[in-house]
Amino acid sequence: MENKLLKLSSSPHIRSGDSVPKVMWTVFLALLPALIWSYVIFGLMAVKLTVVCVLFAMVCEAACLKIRKQPVKSCWDGSAALTGLLVAFNVPPTIPLWMPMLGTAVAVVIVKQCFGGLGCNIFNPALIGRAFLLASFPKHMTSWTLGAQFGNPVDAVSQATPLGLLKEGGQEALLEAFGSKGSMYLDLAFGYGRGAIGCVGEISAVLLLLGGLFLLIRGIISWHIPISFLLTLAVVTFLFKGDPLFAILSGGAMLGAFFMATDMVTSPLTHKGQLIFGFGCGLLTFIIRRWGGYPEGVSYSILIMNATVPLIDGLVSNRVFGTGKK
């Protein structure tokens, strides 16, 4: 009962229509097209994986809230469900089901609830979940199968992702696999043909872009992080004689830029800070992809930048109203 009295923040108090559930379920809606597409490409198992992760995330959240003596009802606010969804979106569709469930549990219990629950986590929970899985099950997390349209991917032969191809065989291997540059861009953008390979939720760049635009229009996210992220990635790739369009269409760039780097809790508060944050993400993604041990670097770059958010916020904090200029 006394908790209710204590839930006061300092002024100014501006009433907005936004609430946690509303924001979270809007993001959910924005990711729905990508989920439907992954059903089309990978079949029922992608949906099964996603549903299991979402439900399991909510169960974990509820259990933690119960232990922490918080209102258990909050597990319906969508934040845990979204974490589960993003974990599922960041694993290969053929992974044994218990692994993403473990990743979800780590994300919700350790990364989020152990740090104090909603709004208190330092790192993006879903990405730590992914990093945990990648460190634990390198074999399962990096074996990909080409999604057969309406087919069953279990029988498909193991193949390299477009980024893996680039890492192993360079531009030539990429061109050989796709036929021509034009068809490569098309396949990657729509997540079709040879482009339909990768994590559950990242295959179709266009659908993710649509979801991102929807969030922009609804005012859930601002343009600063995604644009500076993708722009930096493209420009730096271009400067080092890479293919800028390929860089932003492939791997998890779209998913990361619009849905994970923009997480309100783990990104800077000011627009200037968000530009720096996006720039760092883009640069690190390029560095990891080009010189790192892994073909894909979106998740690690966002996690590293998460750690710098307090520094960025301190560096470019807004002038407090009423104080003098420096």
Binding site: P96, M99, F132, A135, S136, F137, P138, H140
Partner: peptide, 15 residues
């Protein structure tokens, strides 16, 4: 059974 490799790494020690 596929073990959870991260537990054997330094990160797993701290965890």
């Amino acid at each position: 059974w596929d073990p959870i490799g991260i537990m054997i790494l330094p990160a797993g020690a701290l965890l």
